[in-house]
Design a binder for these strands. Structure first.
Lengths: 138, 138
DNA sequence: ACTTGCTTTAGACAATGTCTATTGTAGGAT
DNA sequence: ATCCTACAATAGACATTGTCTAAAGCAAGT
C-alpha cells in the first residue's frame, strides 16, 4: 500500500495534506480502525484536520476500491487497508479483536441456483465469531 | 413461532401487552425489520408503547435465542424471527432486500487450524451480496 | 385485594454518521 | 511566478440508531 498515493494521483485525485495523512494512518498499522480512530490518529499528525474530511476521505478510498469497509460488530464501520487481497474476518465475541482469515473453498459456489432468487451475486462476506486465546484465558 | 408466548411464559417471562404486541409484529410477516420499524408497527397496535420497551424486548428475545440480530447493512440492526433454523443472508446491494438462504457445505470446516489463531470458533455468518431481479430490471 | 418486584415510560444522553455554507487551496493556465 | 477555478476542507448543525435513568405502572403470586 506504500504506492497508494501514486496510484491515487494517477487517477486524478487531488493531493492534499489531509488526504496524505489519512492514507498514512491506514498504511501505518495493519489493524481495523473505526473512522473516529482514524480521525484521532490523523489529528496527531495534522491537528487541524476535521472529522468530516476523514469521513469523506475514507468514503472515497472505499469507492476507489483501495480500502474495505467491514462491519464486524454492529457499532462503527471499520476500515481495512488490505483491499487487494480478498479475505474474511474472525472476530472475538468478547474483546472484539479482529483477524484477517482465508477459508479454503469457494463460498460463492456454495449457494445453489435454487437459493439465488434471481439475484446476480457479486460477493460474499464471511464473519467467523469465537473467543480469542486471551479472553479464553481470562 | 406461534407458540412463542407460551415458551416465554414457561421461562418465567412476565407477560405484558407490550411484549405480546412486539411478538405479534415479529410473528406477523417474516421480514427483517429494524427496531424502529418494529416500534412503528407496534404503535399501530398499542399506541402508547414506548421506543425503549421495544428495544428492551427485542434485546431480551435475542438473549433468549428466540430472535436473531442481523446486520446486513451498516445501518440499523434487523431482527429475524427465524431463529430456530440456521441460515445466512442474501442482500440486494441496490435496494437492500434481504432473503434467507441456505448454502451447501459447512463453512465452519473451511477455516484451517492455521487460520484460527487459537480462537475457539462458535459461529459463522455469511452475507451474499448482489443485485435482485427487480433492481437489475430497472 | 395486597404486595412485591419486574416492566414501562418519557425524555435525556451517547455514538456514529451526514450535510451545508463558507473558506481554503492544488494544480493547470497565463 | 502569479492567477483562476474547480475541487477540497472546515465547523458545526443535524439525523439516525441505540442506551440509560428515575419515576410510575402493573402482573402474578400470596
Amino acid at each position: 500500500m506504500s504506492d497508494l498515493l501514486e496510484r491515487l494521483r494517477g487517477r486524478g485525485w487531488r493531493m492534499t495534506a489531509q488526504r496524505r495523512v489519512v492514507a498514512e494512518v491506514l498504511d501505518g498499522e495493519h489493524v481495523h480502525l473505526t473512522a473516529d480512530e482514524v480521525h484521532a490518529r490523523a489529528v496527531a499528525k495534522l491537528p487541524e484536520i476535521s472529522r468530516a474530511t476523514v469521513y469523506n476521505t475514507l468514503g472515497e478510498l472505499v469507492s476507489l476500491g483501495e480500502v474495505l469497509e467491514v462491519s464486524t460488530d454492529q457499532r462503527a464501520k471499520r476500515y481495512d487497508p488490505n483491499a487487494h487481497q480478498p479475505h474474511h474476518h474472525l472476530v472475538c465475541a468478547h474483546c472484539g479483536a479482529i483477524r484477517d482469515v482465508h477459508p479454503v473453498g469457494n463460498p460463492m459456489a456454495d449457494l445453489p441456483d435454487s437459493e439465488r432468487f434471481g439475484f446476480t451475486i457479486s460477493d460474499v462476506e464471511m464473519t467467523y465469531r469465537g473467543v480469542c486465546p486471551n479472553c479464553a484465558a481470562a
